[in-house]
């Protein structure tokens, strides 16, 4: 069963320089209870996807068209008031930088308790108990003492545990983790990833890992959605994607350093596309080593090429058939 269905989602930012097409027709589905990797370079639309699902796209951004179904319910048709019952309660978000995503002027206890009391009919003391319990779940040592501290008194790893606890307070069914380890030390990264993996198993929620790190995807995810320039390039099971990837995914995979191979790293030539003036046809064609003239024509549709594997590339069949 699909917990989330995103169809032809367009989220644009109306800036003075022009319309930034952060998401330009993204389509993907999300199986309940699994871990999905949302992959792409910076500016590919990964974060905007999570913000769109929660309908918290910052100004001057706006969801222009498309469909977002959460458990079959049309999210975009909900009123602002109804949306509050989704945010934090059914769908949660962990941010990249735990330092900037905690309010510096309030104790973590007060910040987390506020979330509980605004959603559940609970007394302050009960809510605080619940906060402590959730902080324990996120493996924060001594939460009974720590709730009276301010964010700056914690290390980065501890802050991310607090943020994870904040996202889990109301037992959401769906959790977006937006590059949750990018701003942390390598050793802490491993701990946080293990924690997320354990929690997903313990709580049984659906997890979306937003990342540009193919290593994390290989380690944690069952399904992958590859975004590029606001478009979905490829979706599928992790094995199929690693085996017969879209040309963009293939380029991404080649750019990952590996300890067991001495092959040279291949970077993707060129830059991420200008989102105000997207390239015609396939948005990746200016940087694609397989691009032909036909790629500049129409935008390739996302097609199911094999079971659990969809690709937006007109040359994929030809390239993979020939190999």
């Amino acid at each position: 069963m699909h917990i989330l269905e995103v169809e032809n989602l367009k989220t644009y930012f109306f800036t003075e320089a022009g319309i930034v097409k952060a998401l330009d027709g993204a389509t993907f589905n999300l199986e309940k209870g699994t871990t999905l990797g949302l992959v792409g370079e910076s500016g590919s639309g990964k974060s905007v996807t999570s913000q769109s699902v929660l309908r918290i796209v910052p100004k001057p951004g706006k969801i222009v068209s498309g469909k977002i179904l959460f458990e079959g319910e049309d999210i975009l048709a909900k009123s602002e008031n109804e949306m509050r019952n989704y945010r934090g309660k059914k769908i949660s978000l962990i941010f990249q930088d735990p330092t900037s995503s905690l309010n510096p002027l309030f104790t973590i206890g007060s910040q987390l308790t506020e979330i509980v009391t605004q959603h559940e009919k609970m007394k302050k003391t009960e809510a605080l108990e619940h906060v402590i319990k959730t902080l324990k779940l996120a493996r924060l040592p001594d939460p009974e003492e720590e709730i009276y501290r301010y964010p700056h008194q914690f290390s980065g790893g501890m802050k991310q545990r607090i943020c994870i606890a904040r996202a889990l307070l109301l037992n959401p069914q769906l959790l977006f983790a937006d590059e949750p380890t990018t701003n942390l030390d390598v050793t802490i990264q491993a701990q946080i990833l293990t924690l997320l993996k354990d929690l997903q198993r313990e709580v049984g929620m659906t997890l979306v890992m937003i990342t540009h790190d193919m290593g994390i995807v290989a380690d944690m995810c069952k399904y992958v959605v590859v975004l590029y320039g606001g478009n979905v390039m490829e979706t599928g099971m992790i094995e199929t994607i690693f085996e017969k990837p879209h040309p963009y995914t293939e380029a991404l995979l080649k750019a990952v350093p590996r300890l067991d191979q001495t092959k040279e790293l291949v970077s993707i030539p060129g830059n991420i596309p200008n989102l105000i003036e997207l390239p015609s046809g396939c948005v990746f064609h200016p940087r694609c080593r397989y691009a032909v003239d036909a790629c500049k024509g129409n935008k390739p549709p996302l097609e199911e090429v094999e079971a659990d594997h969809s690709i937006a590339c007109i040359r994929w069949r030809e390239l993979n058939g020939g190999r």
């Binding site: 509050r84 945010r87 900037s100 995503s101 510096p104």
Partner: peptide, 27 residues
Amino acid sequence: LRQDYIMAAKASGIQERTILYKYALKN
């Protein structure tokens, strides 16, 4: 209002009023 902690509060379903007059104003 551009800060992450404001978006985080919004993502947690905190009321607009609380975000503006409590979280943002104090900062």
